[in-house]
Amino acid sequence: MKPAPFNYIAASSLAHALSLKAEHGDEARFLAGGQSLIPAMNFRLARPAVLIDINGVGHLAGVDRSNRAEIRIGALTRYRDLERDGDFLKACSLFADALPHIAHPQIRNRGTIGGNLSHADPASELPAIAVAMEATMRIKSATGERQMAASEFFVGVLSTDLQAHEMLVEIAFPTPKPRTGACFMEVARRRGDFALVGIAVVMTLDDARRCSTVRLALCGVGETAVDVSKVAFPLIGQSCTTETIEAVAAGVRDAIAPSGNVHASADYQRHIAGVLAVRAISAAHQRVRHAA
């Protein structure tokens, strides 16, 4: 299990990294935390000809909350840095819930937010969270930049809208509105394993404590993170009760088409999606009420 040969280039700046990518295109991969890419290379499932190490690139890491409307996370921000950022976790409780489920401390010390999202593993927690939080993905290339909604960024299993010459440089979440509660839950075989099913819920209540918006996204049950916010529409304008939540959970079960894997049958995944929907919506709702 040794990687096939490649050229390694430590990029000295963002511009350097982007120009290298422009030059080598699909032949080249960015090396961020390496926690998905290097295992794949050791198994020789990935054989990039050129590896552009972006770990030395400045200004790609960190949380920026200077703009009140949004929370920006640099692509090279490591899981561990977010775990240690109490203010951030308070503002984005989905991360607080989800980060401990992502692998183990040693991997969280290296793995990056941008690497995770670019890798686009449908069982990963973060794409679902990005979708639930209506994140914006900021993308750069040597020739320009663009941005797009998370829900459009993920296009298939391990595949995104990123073009051969592009880099994901930042993701930005709208700062949660007041009276917003959120919860991420998952079922995995062991702590740190990819989720068999995970669900991210973001819920905002109005003055009368009725739901004004509900965002629901799942991981592990489709080719990408699955946005099922639509099934929560009946909740809008309603208050959360056992019955309304059960109805949404039934909707979640119907809205997904999991394929099953070696650890879980498709039926089990569907069932768990419903169970987690009830639990996570209830918990998110509890949290808003406590906060309010």
């Binding site: 390694y8 390496g34 926690q35 590896l51 401390p105 040693q106 010390n109």
Partner: peptide, 9 residues
């Protein structure tokens, strides 16, 4: 910081 040395070059 603890890291996997098999996942670094």
């Amino acid at each position: 910081a603890p890291v996997r040395s098999c996942l670094m070059l």
